[in-house]
Amino acid sequence: MRRHSLPLLATLIPLSLALSACGGSSAADSGTAATAGSGAKVTLSIGDQKGGNESLLKAAGELENLDYTIKWSTFTSGPPLLEAVNAKAVDIGGVGNTPPVFAAAAKSKITVVAATHGSSAGEAILVPKGSTLQSGADLRGKKIAVAQGSSAHFQLIASLEQAGLKPTDVTINFLQPADALAAFNSGSVDAWAVWDPYTSQVLRTGARVLTSGEGLVNGLGFQVAAPAALEDAAKSKVIDDYLKRLQRAQEWVFKHPEEWAKVWAKETGLPYEVALDAVKRSNGTRVPVAVDDAAVVSEQKIADTFTELKLIPGKVVFKDFVDTRFNGNLPPSTTAPRSYGKGS
């Protein structure tokens, strides 16, 4: 496994996925805005990923009756979004479980303020149709594609450890999803560690899951804010309202998976069947939870793992990047994800 010291978050290899995943990529400001009611005095700048929170809030009717303005900026993934938070270009945005660790290691000015807990079934190591690999132990000596610094990267490391392997026992190819998909389809790699909706998309081509993140990774996602926004009383109040709207929208998704899949498919260009698979497997299983001690401990393990692998510089103390003021009466971070039943 190639080892890299990453003093800057920007050194992460870019990802092409514009969904709720976790690796690095370049950002593009969408320039779109959700208009608030007349006389609004506060503008909340929100970092999003395509087919993400803006689409979700629209579908659930949660962008109605706002008394503030939302300026949306679209990013292809978590790390560049957090770069924007650090630069105060964005007040808040949603990412997966690993980008905050890399941002913290880069000494970025970020604060984790909210969390969700969902199924990790969509975090998987996939093998192509016809592969002879049957277990994680069979990965010894094989080539595996993964996006560096992504949640799939941590899931791969955890899966190898569970199989009694070290990262040095395999050849890890750090590839962004588009390149990883091409390598996977051409046979240039033996396996691909990735997340939904890629998991759902590739499974429909005859590929299969070799191992999944269930029981291995924490399934957490986070809303991460700029400290300066939290220090502004008016903006902090607006952030509180925004987080409550997200919580209601997530509840709406669980009750309307097919409707959300249609919206998500339209926004991303995914086939409806793939979007629905991904909603039921992982993206629609999320439960709003507190950023509590258990979440901090779980994230600290991720940070320590990447430190040991020398993929981030120095020690990260994750609790130093957490603000619990918005926890309210949310359930603990260990709350079971939503379930759509066996086989979903």
Rank of each mutant, 00 (worst) to 15 (best):
H4T: 15
S5N: 14
L12W: 14
S20L: 13
G31E: 12
S38H: 13
G47W: 01
G47K: 04
A59W: 06
L63D: 00
E64A: 03
L66M: 01
T69G: 05
G78W: 08
L82D: 05
N86C: 06
A87E: 08
F102Q: 02
T111E: 10
T111H: 13
A114R: 05
S119M: 05
S119G: 05
V146Q: 08
A147Q: 13
A147C: 15
S150C: 02
A152F: 00
G164I: 01
L165R: 07
T168A: 10
Q176T: 04
D179K: 11
G187T: 07
S188F: 12
D190R: 05
Q201S: 15
S212C: 11
N218R: 02
G221M: 07
A229S: 11
S236D: 08
V238F: 02
Y242W: 11
A249P: 03
A249N: 00
E251P: 01
W260S: 04
E267L: 03
E267H: 04
E267D: 08
T268Q: 02
E273I: 13
Q300T: 07
T305I: 03
L311S: 12
V317L: 09
F321N: 03
D323M: 02
P331F: 00
P331G: 01
Y340D: 00
Y340L: 14
K342F: 09
